[in-house]
Design a protein around this nucleic acid. Structure first.
Lengths: 179, 179
DNA sequence: CGCTATTGGTCAAGGCTTTGATTACACCCG
DNA sequence: CGGGTGTAATCAAAGCCTTGACCAATAGCG
């Protein structure tokens, strides 16, 4: 791993944000630099975090983050309908359906027609699925802790508060939702 | 659009986070609830934001957010090598290469062998590409402003500061980077 | 100079997600 | 009870992204 080039590309990217905001405001005066910077920062840090977790934790175990999210919901909520898994995990029903094809093939989840509603499908973790989620989540959270350590304890709480405020604000509520 | 079911699913999801943190800490004592909640909130709000911007701004214009990011970099940085576009946009070289296939097909970008280094490829915005990025970015930022309005002006600055601190912290620097 | 290591770009296979269409089934109202 | 409306799930086509392999060209060292 070439540490110095990693730092270099990081700098490139950081200074590019400054440059981008400046030049954009210059050419498009109606642009608000604060919201531009906010969304840029949010997207960039999340994308780096997801990529890091996926490539250090999930892929090495042979699974993907999206698959992990489905297993996670099933672990916590217990067996339930695909529709509910979609809404709890924040994915579309189509995405859950496609993902469960993979998970079922790999023996982590079973699919059964629901008893009450014959349109619905009940999903349930297999024993292998249960083992997978428990062992993976420990590693996942260890890596999360490494990221979090950059902030002081009170900064962490402030950040969580602001993110949750953003998530329950007007824009989020009126935002287009996955179907 | 059924407003009440939208709110309902939002509540489902919000309360699920509380439930998930509680139950996970119960079963896996080594898990740190703060970093769990931080990453959950970060991922969730970003994913909602990206989905919203993509479906209200980019798809209706006929393009995708990833394509937009490439056009954006080319607009700001001017014509440059694919490698540089990748590092400035935070994408892998493979992803840029694949994406430019689409952008070139749609007449937004041109690909030319570089003068100095015969391995490299220079990318440049066409006139259509330039028009696309300028008109799309105005709409994009308007929507960003709607999201940002949920926070007070000083909260916005605090949030940006914390996100940028997270992005330049140890974990981010040592994180696996896209190749 | 020549050999080797590295770098820029692309391709291929596989996975996830999206929209839109389709098939079953459930529910409700006349 | 029958027909219209809405809902659960799935499929199909298309797009993006990832890893790993590969080629071509450059750079560095003996």
């Amino acid at each position: 791993m070439p540490e110095e080039t990693t730092d270099q590309s990081n700098l490139d990217f950081l200074s590019f944000v400054d440059f981008a905001v400046g030049k954009t405001v210059d050419e498009l005066p109606e642009v608000d630099p604060v919201s531009m910077r906010l969304v840029l920062a949010l997207h960039r840090v999340t994308s780096a975090l997801v990529y890091d977790l996926e490539s250090t934790v999930h892929r090495p175990s042979g699974w993907s983050w999206p698959g992990f999210r489905v297993l996670f919901v099933l672990w916590l909520a217990g067996p339930c309908e695909a529709k509910r898994v979609a809404s709890l995990s924040g994915m579309s029903r189509s995405a859950v359906s496609a993902l469960v094809n993979t998970l079922e093939r790999d023996g982590l989840v079973t699919r059964r027609p629901s008893a009450g509603d014959r349109r619905a499908v009940d999903l349930e973790l297999t024993d292998a699925g249960h083992d997978a989620i428990v062992s993976t989540y420990s590693a996942h959270n260890k890596r999360e802790q490494t990221w979090t350590e950059t902030l002081t304890p009170s900064e962490r709480l402030v950040l969580i508060g602001l993110l949750e405020k953003l998530a329950s604000g007007t824009a989020a509520r009126e935002a287009v939702k996955r179907s």
